[in-house]
Design a protein around this nucleic acid. Structure first.
Length: 217
DNA sequence: ACTCAGGCGCGTGATAGGTT
DNA sequence: AACCTATCACGCGCCTGAGT
């Protein structure tokens, strides 16, 4: 989570939620997408007036469907494909490719190789990985920057008065609009409509019946 | 035969809380 | 301070089923 005005002893305003996950095989990639969705969307809903940035950093293997699912829910995705990870380690002669048949001994040897490879080698692996995924990384951080750099442009508060007119069909509603004189005179107070507009064009809208709820928002 | 997806449950590591 | 225990998140192994 990235927050604004946070302190060591105090949680600030959450403005970005970014989840990280790894999958080696497709078989649970969609599961994972749904877990992320289940973990983050309730938080996004709770802090909806901040309109937080939703991001996922994924690595390994994910099906197109699971990536699309997250995208369509508004997540910005940074995805490191499995091949680019294998290639990054291969550049230091470390073979991290494994599957369900890889023996524990072979696995352990590779882990020991990584552990003993030194800071410089790890840095080179990191650079290789970054270079291989430069474009998606740039896009992800550009999207994040755009959201973090955003500020409130204006706030609209619209008190609504009047009768509520209810119709069983669209036709009825359209007939009413055609005949409506616009100005009805003072009616009963209904609610406050609040709209917050941000510098990047984002909008958050909400309506409240009570002044206290509106103030809370 | 193959891919994708979902259910169940395991081992691991981190953490919190209690006990000695 | 050291130790123990319970709990949780996580990735994945194994299994099954749907669709092609």
């Amino acid at each position: 989570m990235i927050e604004r005005d946070g302190r060591d002893h105090m949680i600030g305003q959450p403005i970005a939620f970014i989840e990280v996950a790894w999958r080696r095989y497709t078989k649970h990639s969609r599961n994972k997408a749904q877990e992320i969705q289940g973990a983050i969307l309730p938080l996004a809903e709770k802090y909806r007036w901040n309109n937080p940035f939703l991001g996922v950093v994924l690595a390994g293997i994910f099906t197109v469907g699971s990536l699309e699912q997250l995208q369509s829910l508004g997540f910005q995705i940074l995805y490191f494909p499995y091949e680019t990870l294998v290639a990054a380690f291969a550049s230091e002669s470390i073979d991290i490719a494994f599957d369900e048949a890889t023996g524990d001994d072979e696995f352990r040897q590779v882990l020991e190789q990584i552990d003993s490879s030194g800071v410089d080698a790890v840095t080179r692996v990191k650079q290789h990985l970054i270079a291989a995924n430069a474009q998606p990384i740039d896009e992800f951080f550009a999207a994040l920057d755009a959201r973090l750099g955003r500020h409130v442009r204006r706030v609209l508060v619209i008190p609504l008065y009047g009768r509520i007119n209810e119709f069983a069909s669209l036709d009825g509603a359209i007939d009413f609009l055609d005949a409506h004189p616009i100005y009805e005179g003072a009616g009963e107070f209904r609610k406050y409509e609040i709209r917050v507009e941000f510098s990047n064009g984002d909008k958050v809208e909400a309506s409240f019946v009570s002044k206290e709820k509106a103030r809370e928002f």
